[in-house]
Computed example of a mutant assay.
Amino acid sequence: MLRNLLALTLVFALTTATDVKQCSGNKPFPLAVRVLNCETPPCDVIKGRDMTFEIDFYVTKYVTKLTTLVKATSLGVTVPYDLPSDVKDVCSNLMHEAYCPLYDTEDVTYLFVFPIGNYPEVSVKVEIYLVDQDNEVATCFVCSIKVKKAPSANSTVYEIDF
């Protein structure tokens, strides 16, 4: 009984959505976003490592291509955040055997592995857009993060991977 309760608690913890915010301009909002090890932003991220998102969303038209665009805002300055082409290609990173093209009202989950560069330790507002072949926003959300340095060599870090 205790084992089942523990397993259920772990599954719930891994599937709980992260409290992300809607983008300005009434852009489509995802069905849910899960950030590994973060329910309530700002999410702590280690510079030089990856931040993992699962983004559940649906499309409102026939979509043949989706690209991830990221804007980062810190200290009042907003800049585009360049991503490697294999990371920004949404279609090749869909989960649960989903693939493009996507059809009107189809819902899917995108695994976005966001590389965090070796940036200063600051708070950053990250806007994540999924843009289709017509350059229209399929979904958009904002997540606040706090870039931190890696723990010292004497520290032990445990990470749950889902």
Rank of each mutant, 00 (worst) to 15 (best):
residue 46 I to Q: 08
residue 36 L to H: 10
residue 60 T to A: 08
residue 47 K to Q: 09
residue 33 V to W: 03
residue 77 V to T: 15
residue 84 P to R: 06
residue 13 A to R: 13
residue 44 D to N: 09
residue 32 A to H: 10
residue 58 Y to E: 13
residue 57 F to Q: 01
residue 9 T to N: 13
residue 46 I to V: 15
residue 62 Y to F: 14
residue 32 A to Q: 14
residue 75 L to R: 12
residue 78 T to C: 09
residue 35 V to I: 14
residue 25 G to V: 06
residue 51 M to K: 02
residue 61 K to D: 11
residue 25 G to N: 09
residue 66 L to D: 01
residue 68 T to G: 01
residue 38 C to L: 08
residue 23 C to R: 07
residue 35 V to L: 10
residue 47 K to P: 05
residue 29 F to A: 09
residue 84 P to W: 02
residue 25 G to D: 07
residue 60 T to H: 11
residue 21 K to P: 04
residue 76 G to I: 09
residue 47 K to L: 06
residue 81 Y to A: 00
residue 49 R to L: 12
residue 51 M to P: 00
residue 60 T to K: 11
residue 84 P to Y: 05
residue 43 C to L: 04
residue 78 T to P: 04
residue 41 P to S: 06
residue 23 C to P: 07
residue 53 F to G: 03
residue 60 T to Q: 12
residue 21 K to N: 14
residue 65 K to H: 14
residue 21 K to A: 15
residue 75 L to M: 13
residue 28 P to T: 04
residue 67 T to N: 14
residue 44 D to C: 00
residue 35 V to N: 05
residue 57 F to H: 09
residue 39 E to H: 11
residue 32 A to D: 12
residue 77 V to M: 13
residue 57 F to G: 02
residue 40 T to R: 06
residue 22 Q to D: 12
residue 44 D to W: 00
residue 48 G to P: 02
residue 50 D to H: 02
residue 60 T to N: 14
residue 70 V to Y: 00
residue 45 V to Y: 05
residue 70 V to C: 07
residue 73 T to P: 05
residue 13 A to Q: 14
residue 18 T to E: 05
residue 42 P to I: 00
residue 12 F to P: 00
residue 59 V to D: 03
residue 11 V to N: 07
residue 34 R to H: 08
residue 78 T to Q: 12
residue 28 P to W: 04
residue 63 V to R: 02
residue 68 T to P: 03
